[in-house]
């Protein structure tokens, strides 16, 4: 929070309006150069994939290779979904981890958290404000990928007459395709919210932002390693990352919702546990 806001609240015995609180946090988050640079880099993800696909698909057979990337060639509307799915593996959680690390641990390391804890703002609202800031980063980053992905898909990759060819071989119109991109974006934000809740919980225990980054990325990498060990396959349903391939389900027809739904429920559990730890820790924290 900015120093100005703290000053005004300090001189004002009335509680701060929640809206102003959130707006202040939003300004605080979005004014950071690293946040803006991150958003810019996320815009590059679909553009780079689009260029790569177009270059690889130079012979024009509409088949840029195997996998999700391969199905982008000549089928541009796959691009936003592929870009979101690929970014979800590491890049988007990184952005959320950076935001979460800054939100509490970063403020603690700068000494600015003390002012927040002393200010006449309830701890619950304080947590809500910080979570809101992280959520905004997640939403904006995802939307940047989705919107730039749709545009790059239509302009750079093109093909399929503005329609989306699903993995099942059917074609859906632009409107429904954008709807599916929106669904994946919503689902991605849900997964990122879970990452963010855990990251904020870690953030509330430390005053070193790097610890938050290390634990979130280390956790994700550990999850990835665990899921490749056959003897531990019973563990897979409990890992947040297991459901992260469900984004490609939006490219199937008829749209199967069970993968997206179950992974969202798992994310919800992570979110609830992370939030509970975060709120408990923050409400007991000494100023």
């Amino acid at each position: 929070m900015t120093a100005a806001t703290i000053d005004t609240t300090a001189g004002d015995p009335r509680p701060v309006p929640t809206l102003r609180l959130f707006a202040a946090e939003l300004r605080w988050v979005l004014r950071r150069p690293r946040t803006l640079i991150m958003f810019g880099l996320f815009a590059l993800v679909p553009i780079l994939i689009a260029i790569g696909v177009v270059v690889a698909d130079g012979d024009g057979d509409g088949n840029g290779g195997r996998g999700l990337i391969g199905s982008i060639g000549g089928n541009g509307l796959v691009l936003p979904i592929a870009a979101m799915t690929i970014s979800l593996t590491l890049l988007l959680p990184l952005a959320v981890a950076v935001a979460s690390a800054d939100a509490i641990a970063g403020e603690a390391s700068h000494g600015t958290l003390r002012g927040l804890l002393l200010s006449p703002v309830g701890r619950l609202r304080l947590v809500g404000m910080k979570a809101f800031g992280v959520l905004v980063v997640a939403v904006v980053a995802t939307l940047v990928i989705a919107v730039v992905g749709v545009l790059a898909g239509l302009v750079v990759v093109g093909g399929a007459d503005g329609q989306l060819i699903t993995l099942s071989g059917t074609t859906v119109g632009l409107g429904e395709a954008v709807g599916r991109v929106g669904l994946v974006a919503l689902w991605t934000v849900g997964q990122l919210a879970a990452v963010g809740a855990v990251a904020l919980a870690v953030s509330s225990f430390t005053e070193h932002p790097l610890v938050v980054l290390a634990s979130v990325l280390g956790g994700l990498i550990t999850f990835g390693v665990l899921s490749t060990i056959p003897a531990l396959d019973w563990l897979a349903p409990y890992l947040l990352t297991t459901g992260w391939s469900a984004g490609a389900d939006a490219l199937r027809d008829p749209l199967p919702l069970d993968g997206l739904g179950s992974s969202s429920l798992v994310a919800l559990v992570y979110l609830v546990v992370g939030a509970a730890v975060l709120i408990t820790r923050m409400s007991r924290r000494d100023a």
């Binding site: 195997r66 996998g67 999700l68 391969g70 199905s71 993995l167 099942s168 071989g169 391939s245 490609a248 389900d249 199937r252 199967p256």
Partner: peptide, 22 residues
């Protein structure tokens, strides 16, 4: 379905189609 693709088989009564997204 596979993680990144799908094989689809459709029989419409007169013709059998199969489609490989890869």
């Amino acid at each position: 379905p596979t993680d990144q693709g799908e094989k689809t088989f459709v029989s419409d009564g007169a013709t059998r189609w199969s489609y490989d997204s890869e």
